[in-house]
């Protein structure tokens, strides 16, 4: 596997790695709130297990989708309407949980609003108004001049940093320790993004990988039905 990491990082690209990006990411815990409520995430080792599992499944999947969407957004000529619809259907088929699909589309929609404000003439109309988050993210990174690898990296990194910060708020973990945990995962995140970039270089979206985190599905559905909660997912 050759290296795909690129050194060119632009200020625009950093927008997508910033948790203050007004795309609603702070409202989602990626399943961690329910896992905390169920006692499955209760200390640093169980949080680490959760984050590693999430990176290898939901993270790897959204990284590959983001890289694919980024590549498509930069394609010349631009992909036809139907290509975005096909990608959307392939992403949905990889998200069995309705709660996860709705969280993905809610965040995708919020991110799309940001993209339209930043690049009013360049956002592909084929995305519709409720794209999946990883698709909107990949397109955004592409519009910001980033590579498919950059899109995969942002997606893979968010797949652990976002639940980690939710866990921080829910459990009152030491923020310095949680940051050290994410730093410890950094090499795995890089590897995940690199593998996802290669996996995304396929003939069509049907060949994208589909790693599934079984408990993520259970947690997402149980969370959607629970009445007392801080996060939307």
């Amino acid at each position: 596997m050759g290296t795909v990491a690129d050194s060119r990082v632009t200020a625009n690209l950093l927008l997508f790695a910033d948790s203050r990006l007004p795309a609603g990411g702070h409202a989602h815990s990626g399943g961690v709130e329910r896992a905390v409520a169920a006692g499955a995430v209760r200390d640093m080792p169980t949080l680490e297990g959760f984050l590693r599992g999430r990176l290898a499944t939901a993270g790897a999947q959204s990284a590959a989708i983001a890289a694919y969407a980024c590549r498509s957004a930069n394609d010349d000529p631009a992909p036809a309407f139907t290509c975005w619809h096909l990608l959307d259907a392939e992403v949905s088929a990889r998200m069995s949980s309705p709660a996860q699909r709705s969280a993905s589309r809610a965040q995708g929609r919020a991110l799309l609003r940001v993209l339209v404000a930043c690049w009013p003439d360049s956002v592909p109309v084929g995305l519709g108004d409720r794209p999946h988050h990883a698709v909107a993210l990949g397109v955004g990174v592409g519009l910001a001049g980033g590579s498919p690898y950059a899109a995969a990296l942002v997606a893979a990194s968010a797949s652990v940093s976002s639940p980690a910060s939710a866990a921080l708020r829910l459990m009152g973990f030491n923020p310095v320790e949680v940051t050290a945990l994410i730093a410890d995962l950094a090499e795995d995140i890089d590897r995940c993004a690199e593998a996802a970039t290669h996996a995304s270089d396929t003939g069509g979206p049907e060949l994208l990988p589909s790693p599934t985190g079984l408990m993520l599905d259970v947690l997402a559905e149980d969370h959607a039905r629970s009445e007392v909660k801080l996060f939307a997912s």
Partner: peptide, 26 residues
Amino acid sequence: DRPVLRQTIWVGAAAPTGWDGAAGSG
């Protein structure tokens, strides 16, 4: 001809770390 399900479950000793954690098989 419409995609309905794409799912890969990877578990066990040689699966990526975290497979048996709170996001994986629990």
